[in-house]
Structure formats: C-alpha cells, structure tokens
Amino acid sequence: MLKLNKVHHVAIICSNYEVSKHFYTQKLGLPILHEMYREERQSYKLDLLVGETTQIELFSFPDPPQRVQYPEARGLRHLAFEVDDVVKAAEELEREEIEVEPVRIDPVTGKKYTFFKDPDGLPLELYEA
C-alpha cells in the first residue's frame, strides 16, 4: 500500500499576480520562500510557506480560464488553513477588509470553522485546531 506522509504543496493559478501576491503575503502573512519569472511560460511562480512544512505555489499564466464556482464543480472544493482561534483569525481578516462568513461549528468534530475567498474567488477555510 502506498504511504503518503503529508501534503507538500497546493498550486493556485491566479488572474492578477500582484493582487494575489499581496493578498497571500500581506493580508494572510505567508512568508515567501522563492519567487521567479519563467519567460518561456510568461508566468510567475511564487512559493509561500504555510506553517513549518506546507507550501502554496502561486502561479500566473496569460489569460487563464475562470474557475467554475456554482453550482459546485468537480475538483478541489476549497483549501483549509488550521488556526488556533477561528474567531480571532476571522476578526483579523475582517480588519484587512476581507469578507468572512459567520463562524459555524462542525457537527462531527465540534470544531469552529468559517470561509472566505481569495482575490479570484477561491474558497478558503479557517478550521480551529
């Protein structure tokens, strides 16, 4: 049986590189590991660190197609970030003028969670540790 150790990275394609870079680094506070422009693809690639080991790869490509939002389509549904305090984290996002859904309770785990979106409408979740 295949043994998977952990999720190493999640790749995101954005429509406006500078706007998304600002969102993930300045509003969410993710540190930059590496940034490069790939001339042959006319694409930026930005590696961001989440926690101690997980990464987000942020890509820009010329004219990427829009993501299907609703009704929900197959594929990645959302990206969830673990936080110590969902209410506090949501308040921090709201101070950055990021709209956050009301905090809810997971009926299975009893943990708090909420959703917000990145500049391209990608659903992001905060889930309490």
Rank of each mutant, 00 (worst) to 15 (best):
P62I: 01
L124M: 08
L122K: 04
Y37K: 08
Q42M: 05
F115C: 00
E39K: 12
P71L: 02
D63I: 01
R104V: 03
H22N: 13
E125N: 05
E18G: 00
D118Q: 11
L46P: 04
E125M: 06
E128H: 12
V103Q: 06
I13C: 10
V50N: 02
Y24T: 02
K3W: 12
F23Q: 00
D84Y: 14
V68E: 15
S15C: 05
I32G: 05
T25R: 01
E72W: 04
V83N: 12
N5W: 11
E35H: 13
M1R: 11
Q66T: 06
V68I: 04
H9V: 02
V103L: 05
D85R: 08
L122N: 15
E72M: 04
Q55R: 12
L48C: 01
I105H: 12
N16L: 08
D106T: 06
E96R: 12
K117Q: 12
D120G: 07
P65S: 09
G29S: 06
R77V: 10
Q42T: 10
V7W: 02
Q26N: 10
G51R: 09
H22D: 15
E72P: 02
G121M: 09
V10T: 11
P107S: 10
T114A: 11
A73L: 00
K21P: 07
S43L: 02
M1L: 09
K21M: 05
H9A: 02
Y44V: 00
I105C: 04
L126E: 04
A129E: 15
S43R: 03
L79R: 02
V83W: 10
K88S: 15
K45H: 14
I98D: 07
R38G: 00
V50H: 01
E91H: 11
P71W: 06
R95T: 14
G51M: 04
D85Q: 12
D118Y: 14
A11Q: 14
F59Y: 13
T114I: 12
L79S: 01
T114R: 09
L93D: 12
E72S: 07
M1S: 15
Y44N: 14
D84N: 15
E101Q: 14
F81S: 02
D63R: 07
A129S: 12
Q69C: 00
D120T: 06
E96K: 15
N5D: 15
T53P: 00
H34T: 05
F59Q: 03
K3M: 13
L4H: 09
R104H: 08
P62T: 03
T54C: 10
S43K: 03
E128I: 03
